[in-house]
Amino acid sequence: MITDSISVPREDRLSAIRTSKLFWPLAALALLLSFNLITDPSFFAIEYKNGVFFGSLIDILNRAAPVALLALGMTLVIATGGIDLSVGSIMAIAGATSAWLISHEVVNSLWLILAISLGVSLLAGLWNGLLVTALGIQPIIATLILMVAGRGIAQLITNGQVLTFSHEGFEMIGGGAFLGLPLSISIVICSYALALLLLRKTALGLFIESIGSNPIASHYTGIRSNLVKFSVYGVCGVAAGLAGLILTSDIQGADANNVGLWSELDAILAVVIGGTALTGGRFSLSTTLVGVVILQTLTTTILTHGLPVQYTLIVKSAVVIIVMLLMSAEFRHQMKSLFQRGQRSE
C-alpha cells in the first residue's frame, strides 16, 4: 500500500496490483458477482425498510459473518503451522452455554451472558493450546479431540434438544441492526480491526509468521513460541464462541447437534482461498475475509438461482477448484506459456 507512490511507472503499478495478494481472490469474487449481474440483476437490489437495508448482498455479508469470525481465528492458527478442527464444536458449546444461562434464568445481564459464554469458549481454545504446546500433540489430532467431545458437551448442556429462549438483549447479537446493517457485520469489522491492530502494530504478527515458517530459527531468536501458539488457540476459541453466539441468537435457540456442523471446513477453505498456506508462515486476514465472502456469495447465488439440490455440491466444488487454479501462480504461468506457444506456431 505504501509503495503506491506517484513516481512508479504505470505498467509497474499495474503489475504491482496484479501480484498483490488481494488481486486474484477479488477477481474471483468479481467474476461471481458479474455472473449474477448478467443472469439476475435484482440480486443487487437493496431496499430500505423499517430502518434496515434488505437485499441479497446484505444477506451474503450477514450469513458470512459467523464463518468470517471462524476464519479470522483459523488464519492465525494456520499461520503458526497448526490447524483447529474444533471450532464448530466450540460454536455449539458457546451457543448451548448462553441458551442454558438464559432459559434457566441463571443470569439476566447481557454482558454477563456474553462474558461467561465467551469465557467457556476461551477455556476450550486454551485446552487445544495446552494439548498442542505442553503435550506436543499434533494440532490436527489435538483439536480433533474437542471436535468430537465438544459437540457431546454441548448436547449434554442442552439435553440433546433445541434449547429455545427469549432474551431481548441477546437476540440483538444475531438479529439486531447497526447503521441499518445487521449487527453481525459490525462485529466482524470490529474483530478484524482489533486483530489488525494487535498483529500489525505490534510484533505479534511477525512472531506468528516466523513460528509458522521456521519454528527452530524463531526459537533461537528468543520468541516464546509455545506462549504465542497457546494464546493463538485461545483467540481462535473466542472467535468461534462469538460465531456460535451469533447463530444461536439468530434462531433464538441452541441447536447443539447442528450449529456450526462442518463449518471448520468452510473456515479452512476460506483461509486457503485467501492464499494463506496450510504449512504456515505468511498470512493475510483481509484475503481470508474475501475468501469467506466468495464462499457465501456462491451459496447465496445457488439458493437464489434455484439450482437443483443434487447439483449444489458439485457446482460448489467446481467453482472452488476454478478459484484455486486462478490463484495458483504456477498454473497461470503454465497457461501463459501454453498460450504463447500457441501464438508462435501460428
Binding site: 441479497s56 433445541v162 434462531i251 447442528n258
Partner: peptide, 17 residues
C-alpha cells in the same frame, strides 16, 4: 438440511428471489 439455521437462510434467499 433439517436445521433451523439453514431453513432460515434458504427462506431469506427465496424471499429475495
Amino acid at each position: 438440511e433439517w436445521t433451523r439455521t439453514k431453513g432460515k437462510e434458504v427462506m431469506e434467499a427465496f424471499l429475495k428471489s
